[in-house]
């Protein structure tokens, strides 16, 4: 289609005119849509013809043995890795393959890394402040002021993540579990439409895991959450739908019970006692 016909369609909303606040369009179905995605490193196919659909407000768990391509999949969704083929759509309007990491993040996709990554030289409060949804261009950031509303929002998240007493501490001195919580807190500050959470409960105590499970299930509904996790107990406690990845593609999908009785899955996990 030529550019002229595009401009003559008077009723069309152009990309550059579209409202920036929560621009994702989920009227026509899923919030995240991966189709026929393949990526290889030096001939090794880390992701092989992967198809995945996440509905708006869904809580999805993704499991799979080491090397199944879970982290690479997250890299593709967040723009860190470009696939060789396939398409990735966020809602029905945004082609994620044409965007870079900050664009994707501003669209409302938040990510928690496998290894907790927080800004160690900054305080807990400052970590949350940076994560906060705001105009993140250079000059607005330079002149940004912290309003009472912002403080309240940060306070709320501090409360939720149990880091209230530590707000002035440097993030570097936190324990592993506290860093996990801080990172989850940073995700919440972003107010994303879709949360990608990579191994959220590694290094957490039983109690902390319970709180995390509560938090994630609580989020689902308003936001979509994708959890990659190894801890089967944890997955069982939160999962509604589970996707099993194996060698870069979907092996099985369904409820936890259905999946764990699937003979293909059992074979892959043989001896791991799903």
């Amino acid at each position: 289609m030529s550019i002229f016909t595009e401009f003559t369609e008077r009723d069309r909303v152009f990309d550059f005119l579209a409202p920036t606040a929560s621009p994702v369009d989920v009227r026509h179905g899923p919030i995240l849509y991966l189709e026929d995605v393949t990526v290889s490193f030096d001939g090794f196919r880390a992701i092989d013809d992967l198809n995945l659909t996440i509905d708006d407000g869904e809580l999805r768990c993704i499991i799979g043995p080491n090397g199944a391509g879970k982290t690479t999949m997250m890299d593709i969704i967040t723009g860190k890795t470009r696939p060789d083929t396939g398409s990735v759509w966020f809602g029905s309007r945004h082609n994620l393959l044409r965007m870079n990491e900050p664009d994707i993040a501003s669209l409302g996709i938040g990510r928690k890394f496998q290894k907790p990554t927080v800004f160690e030289a900054l305080s807990v409060f400052e970590n949350l402040e940076l994560a906060m949804a705001a105009d993140k261009r250079v000059f607005p950031t330079l002149t940004a002021r912290l309003t009472g509303e912002h403080r309240d929002r940060i306070g709320e998240v501090l409360e939720m993540t149990g880091l209230k007493d530590l707000w002035r501490r440097e993030a570097g001195v936190l324990s592993h579990g506290q860093k996990q919580w801080l990172e989850i807190g940073m995700l919440l500050m972003q107010r994303p439409r879709l949360l990608l959470v990579d191994e959220p409960v590694a290094g957490m105590t039983e109690q902390e895991m319970e709180r995390t499970a509560e938090l994630l299930t609580g989020l689902a509904g308003q936001q979509s959450v994708v959890v990659v996790e190894h801890d089967m107990g944890f997955v069982r406690s939160i999962a509604r739908t589970v996707t099993v990845l194996h060698q870069g593609s979907v092996l099985a999908e369904g409820s936890m019970d259905a999946v764990s009785n699937d003979p293909k899955v059992v074979e892959v996990y043989l001896g791991e006692g799903i």
């Binding site: 967040t78 870079n100 990491e101 900050p102 993040a105 501003s106 938040g110 990510r111 890394f113 990554t117 927080v118 800004f119 940076l130 994560a131 993140k136 261009r137 250079v138 950031t141 940073m186 972003q190």
Partner: peptide
């Protein structure tokens, strides 16, 4: 991490 928070 900074990039994934939406900063360029």
């Amino acid at each position: 991490r900074t990039r994934f928070l939406g900063y360029r």
